[in-house]
Amino acid sequence: MNGQLIKSQKKLTRRLLELLLPFGLLSIIMVWIGLPILYALLWSLVNPEYPWSYPDLFPTNLSLFQWEYVFKYTTIVKSIGNSFFLAFLTTIACFMLALPTAYALGKRKLKGSEFFKIIILLPMVFPGMAMGLFLGRMLHVMGVSGTYWGVVIVHTLVALPYMLRILIVNFESMPQDLIDAASNLGAGNWVKFTEIYFPMILPGLVAGAMFTFITSMEEFNLTFIVGAPDITTIPTVLYSYLGENFLRTRASVVSLILLIPNLLFLIVAERKIKTEYMGAALGKM
């Protein structure tokens, strides 16, 4: 009787623990992720008429003053335009460059494919600042340093591996029998391309384009070296408000501006992008 009671009590505690654990974990995660974002948001809404200082945990008055200030008096509008323009050009360049190579490596299975796949990883492991400095030197000699062309060249270099890896996985998973069936039924190369290849690479293309776009949007090291001082993007503007010249309110506004596209990307990626493409882009360096 007594033993049974203890047993049922034990069971109850376990059930309670199993219920509490998710909630405990959820609150830890919310603090871990939410607190930094919440405080950035609060700092971007500080009203300079009512300064927020030491003993207050929260600001006493909120206003949009900081946002207005940043948009009115800094170069942010131009930088946002630059960032999107550069990301757009980079995505197109990456697609054009990656398509033939991904076809050759994923579908044709050339001799030495494995070796070339390792070469593709080089921009991901080359120390960013080292590549920036010495590639920047070469681009300077070529006369494209500080121009849109120069920045597009380096952004393409950094983002190309993502596009390549995703498209390679896409080509590898393409069913050969479908292509053979089309050939048997007398489809020419053009028909095969428009009716079979293109619809089948579309999901990989979308995933690759999203990764390329985001990589270009957040790329800092190379933009900072090659683009400065003429080409400013959102990350280089943010950098100027951090470090030794820390400007908290402005930095929080620019941080949030830069955070928005990435969070949108995460939401879309979670729903739409297949796990195998996510794995191709992130899983193995």
């Binding site: 054009m96 460059l97 990656a98 398509l99 033939p100 190579t101 991904a102 076809y103 050759a104 490596l105 044709r108 050339l110 070339f116 070469i119 593709i120 080089l122 921009p123 080359f126 080292a130 590549m131 010495f134 590639l135 030197r137 070469m138 060249i153 393409t156 270099l157 190309l160 591996p161 390549l164």
Partner: peptide, 22 residues
């Protein structure tokens, strides 16, 4: 087929090797 590698692998190799060389 190896010619198809030029845009992707060639681009990466050119710029990475160039910066390594410099």
């Amino acid at each position: 087929g190896y010619l198809l590698l030029i845009p992707g692998v060639g681009y990466i190799m050119f710029f990475v090797l160039a910066s390594l060389y410099i």
